[in-house]
Design a protein around this nucleic acid. Structure first.
Length: 296
DNA sequence: ACCCACCCCTGGGCGC
DNA sequence: TGCGCCCAGGGGTGGG
């Protein structure tokens, strides 16, 4: 039945920005200050962004000490004492786990890092291999491969006015703009739909038709969605066991739009609709979020 | 410079 | 019951 929320429940939570921040915190507590002993690459696709190949990836990491755990949007990186940065993206299904070396390996283990102290090891597990890792030369401050990624709305240095100006200067649909990581990072399909529902905007609304006030309001809602999700995830995890499990699961209960086709709108009661959009789905309220005459 | 379609990938769910 | 299709979607790429 369309109204059954269990249909959209994930086995592996999709890593949205709050989940990635939870992982960053876990890496900070679990691997910063430690020295990598050895690296095993179990699947070449997981290091495909490291152009010099898996062996080079391994050689650049062995013996290096991890100095910090940083994040830009959904990208994570670990500055190393060599000046390079181990950089990664979880993609659709990636997990970075800090687990006892004795723990049986996961089915989709792709890369494994052991440390010189012999304690917990780091595992990159990724069923669908959309995610990946690479070592970026001189990438401690911001890896050169991700300089095009904008800051996220929770970043203290995020520039609200610049975002609003650039958003309104675009000529595209507002949902497309929210998903454009060069404009604002950290918002995926789920949170875009939630922010649009809160702002009572249809995703196909032309960006150039938004007033400054409405654009400001949309940004505020996006920020709220991210903060609320982060707040719920942050209370429920053991930072030493770096995992996103439970984070999406908790926040999913408070979703107003995403995955709720046919269920009553929490604001007006109208059954929510699902629209095919760019080979995926958009969920919205037909009453609160009227489709523009010429959707983009 | 900007916009957008396409592609990458796996496994759960479901129709036949 | 089992086969095969559909769906989930972030981000890189290349064409317009």
């Amino acid at each position: 039945m369309p109204g059954d929320r269990s249909r959209t429940r994930y086995r592996t939570p999709l890593p949205e920005l709050p989940e990635v921040e939870v992982v960053r915190l876990g890496l900070e507590k679990g691997v910063v200050g430690r020295t990598i002993a050895a690296v095993q690459v179990h699947h070449p696709r997981s290091v495909r962004r490291h152009e010099a190949g898996a062996q080079d990836f391994i050689d650049l990491l062995a013996g290096r000490r991890v100095l910090a755990a940083r994040r830009r949007g959904k990208y994570l990186w670990l500055p190393l004492d060599s000046g390079d940065a181990l950089t990664g993206h979880l993609g659709m299904s990636g997990q970075l786990l800090v687990v006892p070396a004795s723990k049986p390996v996961e089915t989709h283990l792709r890369v494994r890092f052991t440390f010189t102290d012999g304690r917990r090891e780091l595992r990159f597990v990724d069923q669908r291999t959309f995610g990946g890792l690479s070592v970026v030369a001189g990438g401690a401050d911001l890896p050169s491969t991700i300089t095009h990624i904008a800051r996220d709305p929770l970043d203290p240095e995020f520039d609200d006015d610049l975002f609003v100006t650039r958003l309104r200067a675009k000529s595209t649909g507002v949902k497309r703009a929210l998903l454009d990581q060069t404009l604002v990072s950290g918002i995926g399909n789920i949170y875009a739909d939630e922010a649009l529902w809160r702002a009572q905007l249809h995703g196909g609304r032309a960006t150039e038709s938004l007033t400054k006030t409405k654009a400001d309001e949309l940004l505020g809602h996006a920020r709220d969605v991210l903060n609320e999700s982060l707040g719920q995830g942050g209370t429920s995890f053991d930072a030493l066991y770096v995992s996103t499990e439970g984070v999406s699961g908790l926040f999913e209960r408070s979703l107003h739009a995403y995955g709720r086709e046919g269920e009553p709108c929490d604001r007006c009661g109208t059954p929510l609709r699902r629209e095919a959009w760019m080979n995926r789905s958009s969920y919205s309220c037909p009453t609160c979020q009227p489709r523009p005459r010429r959707p983009r």
